[in-house]
Write a protein that binds this DNA or RNA. Structure first.
Lengths: 197, 197
DNA sequence: CAATCTCGTTCACAAATGTTAAGAAATTAT
DNA sequence: ATAATTTCTTAACATTTGTGAACGAGATTG
C-alpha cells in the first residue's frame, strides 16, 4: 500500500536537514493517528480545529441531500493535507463531512500547536501559505471545469490527472464528484471503451 | 448611478475614526482611476500586481475558447475588490482577462504599496485576510452549485442573491457565467415567467 | 452452501440542455 | 430619423444526462 512518510515529506518540502527535522519533532511529536474505513475526521456541526497530513489512505468530503445521498465534494489521498478551511478559519460549524474512504493513517496537528510552530519555523508557514494558495487555484479550476466541460471531458481529465480517483474510489462516489448520476458515468465509460477499441 | 466611496468604505469596514482615515490617505492617496467600458484591468499573459476597489461600475472575468467566445468566470460590481489572486500571489502570467463591463471607477493599489500599508495598519491586513477567506468560500460554493444544482436553480439563486447580475449583465454573459447557452437561459426565463403568472 | 447485499451495467424512456436558424426587439451609429 | 448592429427570443431538432427498473458478478453474512 502506498505510504508517504510525514518526516520525509517535511524535510523534502521545507528543504531542511535532518537536524532541523529533529528539532521540529519536539514541537509536533510524530504520533500517527489511525482512521478506520468510514471513521469521520470531521462531521457536520463540528468546528474544524486541526489539519492532518495523510500518510496513507484516502478521505471523502461530502454533504448529504434530503434523500441522504452523499454529495461528494472532494477526495484526498496520501500526500495531501486534510482540513476544512471554511470552518478552520471562520470557527463556524462545518457543513461538510470528512470520512475515511479506506483505512487511513494521518499526522494530525491542532491549530494552536500549528501557530506556535509557525512562529518557530517560518519556512513551515511559507509552505502552509503555498498549500492554501494551491487549494484556492484548485477549487477555482474545479468550478471552471464544471462550468465549461461536459461530463465526459471531466471524466477523461480525471483519468489523466488523478487516476487514483478511478482506481480507488467507488464509481458512485466518483460520479457524484463529477456532478452526474452513476448510470451516466457507466454510460460514458462504455462509450470511451468503444472508441479506444 | 450607484457609487460607494472608498474612504467611507474603509472607515466603516476597519471601524476607525476620521483622523485615522486621514493618516491612511498619506499612504494610499485617494486617486480614482477610470476604466471606460471594455477597457481591460488585466489581460491574459500579464502578471497581476495590484488590487483595486470598485467605487462604481462593474468588471467581467473571462477566458476565451477556440471560437473566441467569452467564457465568463465572474462579474463584480461597486463595493467589491478586483484582482486576480492566482496571478497576484504566484507572480505567474494571468490566464484570465478582467474587463470593464460599464464605465468603471476604481481605487487601485499596487501590491508593494499594500505591503507597507499592512505593516503600518494591521487592521487593514485583517480585512484583507477576511476578504481572501470570503473569496475562497465563495468559489467553493460556486463549484458546489455547478455540481449539484440545475441551470434553473442556479438562475433563481442568482436572481435572489445578486439581482445586479440580472439587471446589469447582458444575458449571454450571464448564461456563460451559469454554464449554459444563451438560448437555454432564455428558455428558463420563459418557463419561470409562465409559472409566476 | 445458500441467502443477502452491494455495486456496476444495461435498457427504455423522460427531462434538460445544446445547436442551428430565423426573426423580433433593443441599442448604437450615421 | 434611419440604418446598421447587437441582443434576445422562439422554434425545431439533436444530444446529453437523469430516472427507474432489471440483471448479474462478486463480496459478505448467516
Amino acid at each position: 500500500m502506498q505510504h508517504i512518510d510525514f518526516l520525509n515529506y517535511i524535510q523534502r518540502e521545507l528543504q531542511i536537514n535532518g537536524a532541523e527535522v529533529e528539532e521540529m519533532r519536539q514541537f509536533v511529536p510524530y504520533k500517527p493517528k489511525f482512521l478506520a474505513k468510514n471513521d469521520l475526521f470531521l462531521s457536520v456541526g463540528k468546528v474544524c480545529t486541526s489539519v492532518a497530513f495523510i500518510e496513507s489512505g484516502a478521505v471523502l468530503y461530502f454533504r448529504e441531500n434530503d434523500d441522504a445521498d452523499k454529495l461528494v465534494c472532494d477526495v484526498l489521498f496520501e500526500g495531501s493535507w486534510v482540513t476544512y478551511i471554511q470552518s478552520l478559519v471562520t470557527k463556524m460549524p462545518s457543513d461538510m463531512n470528512i470520512q475515511a474512504l479506506e483505512d487511513t493513517r494521518i499526522i494530525e496537528i491542532e491549530q494552536d500547536v500549528l501557530n506556535t510552530f509557525f512562529e518557530k519555523f517560518p519556512k513551515a508557514e511559507r509552505l502552509s501559505r503555498k498549500l492554501t494558495e494551491a487549494s484556492f487555484i484548485q477549487i477555482a479550476q474545479r468550478a471552471a471545469d464544471l462550468q465549461f466541460l461536459t461530463a465526459e471531458e471531466r471524466y477523461t481529465k480525471v483519468l489523466k490527472e488523478e487516476p487514483r480517483l478511478i482506481e480507488r474510489v467507488p464509481q458512485y462516489y466518483l460520479a457524484s464528484l463529477l456532478g452526474i448520476a452513476p448510470q451516466s458515468l457507466s454510460r460514458i465509460r462504455k462509450e470511451l471503451s468503444k472508441q479506444s477499441s
